[in-house]
Amino acid sequence: MGKMAIDRSQSTLVDAFLRDEMARGNRALRSVAPVIGHMLDSEGPSLFGDAIVARLRGMINDIAAQFVGELPLNPENSEMLKALVDVVAQQLASDETVVDHLYSVALEGHLTAKLKQTASIDPVLSPLMQELIASDKPEIAEIAMSTMAAQSRFAQSQNRMEMPVGELPFEVFSRVLDLFEAAPLGAGKHHIDAAIAKLKRAYDEGAGRIGLLARLSSSMHGGAIAALDLSHAGLALFASAMASLTGQPREHAVFACHEAQIVRLALMLKAAGLSAHAIEGQLAVLGGTKPLPDGFAALSQSVAQDTLREMSEV
C-alpha cells in the first residue's frame, strides 16, 4: 500500500515534468518561425540585431544578479551563485512585461549609439539639455542636472550591458519583484522577503532616468514640442516628450525611432503637433527606409491622434 502510494506520487511527478518539458518545447517551436523570420528579414534593418539580443540577455542577467546579490549567500561559492542567477534570469526572460520593456531599453541604447555615430548627436548633453541646465528657474535646472547624470549612467550601463533594477518603471519593477518572489530558489522565505523589502525601499520612480525625463518634459509644458527634434534634444528627451505629447507609452515612442518603423514615427510626430516639413527632417536624421504615403502632409493632427489611439489598443 505504502509502495503504491510512492509509485503514484513518483509517476505524477514524472508526468508533470514531462508535460512541462513538452509544453516548453512546443512554445519554443511555435516561436521559431516568427523569430527566424524577423532575423532574416531582408526588407531593411532587422528589429533583432545581434547587438540588441546580446544587450537584452546581459540586462536580464544583471537584474537577476542584483537580486541574488541581496540574498545572504556565501560569495565564495560562485557555482551556486551562477546557478541561482540563471534560475531567476530564466524567470525574467519568460515574462512579457519585463522583456518588452528591456527590449525598448536595449533598442534605445542601440539607437543612441547609432545616432552618435551617424548624426553626431551627443547621447548625454544635447543642446536642449544644455539650455535646460542653464535655465533661470533653479528647480528646472536641478531636474535637468539630475537627468543628465542619470543619462550618463545609462550610457555607461548600456555599454556594460547592465540594468540597475531601480531604473525600471513602476509596472516593470513590481512585476520583477513578483518574479523574484516566485523564482524557485530554495532560499528561506524571510531572506527573500528581506531582499525584496530592501529593493523596495531604495526604489523611487521619479528619481530614475525615465522618471526624471518625464518630469523634465512635463516641466517644459507646451514647450515640450521643442524636444521633438532629435539633433536638438537627443533621443532620450525626444522619446519622453513624444510619449508625453501623444499619451503613448514611452516604449512605443522608442520603438517608433527604429528605422523600420518610420511610418509609426511620422504618425506620432503628427499627433504631437509637428508640421509635415519638420517630420521629414526627423525621418531624415534616422535614415528611414520606408516612404511615407502621398497625402500624409494633408493628414490632420486629430486624425493622426485617433489613428494612433485606435492602433495602439490592439
Binding site: E205, A214, S244
Partner: peptide, 22 residues
Amino acid sequence: ERGLRIAREFSAFDGQDKVGGF
C-alpha cells in the same frame, strides 16, 4: 498596495477643463 514610490504624468477632468501635471 505595492509600497513603491510612483512618478507619473496624470491628467483629469475637473468638469470643465482638463487639468494635470506630474
